[in-house]
Design a protein around this nucleic acid. Structure first.
Lengths: 243, 243
DNA sequence: GACTCAATGTTTACGATGTCAACATTGCAC
DNA sequence: GTGCAATGTTGACATCGTAAACATTGAGTC
């Protein structure tokens, strides 16, 4: 993770921390070029070690890239958490919960935009038992925050309990598809300003899709308590408010 | 595209239709193993031709996989259109528009599920000008149907015109993220029945996200005309109605 | 009908990659 | 100190993408 000892020409025969050096070199490769750029020989080269030395610490290329994938997932949830912490909390608990939901979504998409290589590596296809492949991510702070936020939304009454179930997946699939279409799809061709509008439109839609109704973007007490048929508010433009 | 002449041992020196034979062989590789499985030498091998012969018809591996990607995209929109045609039309134009929207979404996800290799190839990362990379897909029948369906939703009044803008992207990002998380994400680990529920929950949420309100799943005249503050209906369970 | 030539395939070869087997070096335990 | 297990190295092999040089053929042209 640190800076030293990952560059070539060490004096000693033994490296001392090859496993970490290799995986962080591989992480750098992923950062620059995505999963395809994670090549074992190159990582070894950058660390200044023979290619086959890697086999003392990794079962092979597959194992190396799996490790990198975990690191990428960790960075992703880190970014989500950072975005959460960056914003200013709202006093009203309902608005606060909504703010957190949006912050998590924005963090997700922003990570994809700012670190496309890492994001694509975090979700690159790999075969093997899926459970263990994703267990860490699901248990990580960023995703736990999502669950907690949705719970808070239900508790404060913004979110009808009937809509609570499956809400994390609505959120996740939404931001994931958005990110993917930006990186590997046609959305990457959009000019920045336009893309910003699309992102906000989709994030709005995700919130709406979770709640089952819209929510006022700007003004006053638009959010109904958890009485039935809580009055939905008027409309929302498609453009780019929020940041 | 046909069955013959793609297998080895031809008599003549000249193949006659190498370009097509190679790309359909490559398509088969993609079907089985996704984009990583599209290897030029193997395609040539299956056609019964030397590896370098491919260079008479493709600029290189990149070019071959680009061709395959286009084919995959075509199959995707084909599936969407098929799913559209498969369902029984509703008499009420509003319900009909909603049915079409859902059919397109289901077709998208079902294609991803039934042809994971092709789906992943259709959206595999490639560098180069994005515009031309996606122009064909956006112009294809399946996606034109999406636009038309959303227009119909606006015309019939189910969809508030203020919500019309950007609606295709809400739909697309939603089903895309869902598909991706099924293929390359944690959703692939879910048992079929449970996954079915998730899919329906997300498709519901997409519709809700587009409309800005919910829509009655089963019963009578729940859809309001386009008067303002059209009365949103009660609730929707998370489980698996619809098919 | 023979000749020409551009189109199409083939052979050979090179560099890069993942990986294995055999060998070298070193730190640590006794 | 000695011996052994851990850790690196060298060399080799199969596969892949790709370039250069060569071979075959079909389609015009006289």
């Amino acid at each position: 993770m640190d800076g030293m000892s990952t560059t070539a020409s060490r004096g000693t025969y033994h490296h001392g921390d090859l496993a970490n050096a290799l995986s962080s070199a591989a992480l750098d490769l992923a950062r620059r070029g995505g999963p395809e750029a994670v090549v074992l020989r190159e990582a070894a080269r950058q660390v200044g070690v023979s290619a086959t030395a890697a086999y003392r610490h990794f079962a092979g290329h597959e194992d190396l890239i799996e490790t990198v994938q975990q690191l990428c997932q960790t960075e992703l949830v880190g970014r989500m958490a950072a975005e959460l912490a960056a914003g200013v909390p709202e006093s009203d608990p309902q608005r606060e919960a909504l703010r957190r939901l949006r912050a998590l979504g924005r963090g997700y998409v922003q990570f994809a935009q700012s670190e496309p290589g890492l994001f694509r590596t975090a979700f690159c296809h790999r075969d093997g038992p899926l459970d263990e492949q994703w267990a860490a991510l699901l248990a990580a702070p960023g995703f736990q925050e999502l669950t907690a936020t949705l719970d808070a939304m239900a508790d404060t009454g913004v979110l009808d309990p009937a809509h609570r179930v499956g809400a994390e997946l609505v959120a996740w699939t939404g931001v994931h598809g958005l990110s993917m279409l930006i990186l590997d799809g046609p959305l990457g061709a959009l000019p920045a300003a336009e893309l910003e509008g699309v992102i906000n439109r989709v994030l709005d839609a995700i919130t709406t899709g979770i709640l089952g109704r819209e929510v006022t973007p700007g003004g006053g007490a638009g959010i109904a308590p958890r009485t039935r048929a809580g009055g939905p508010t008027r409309r929302a433009s498609a453009g780019g408010r929020h940041t």
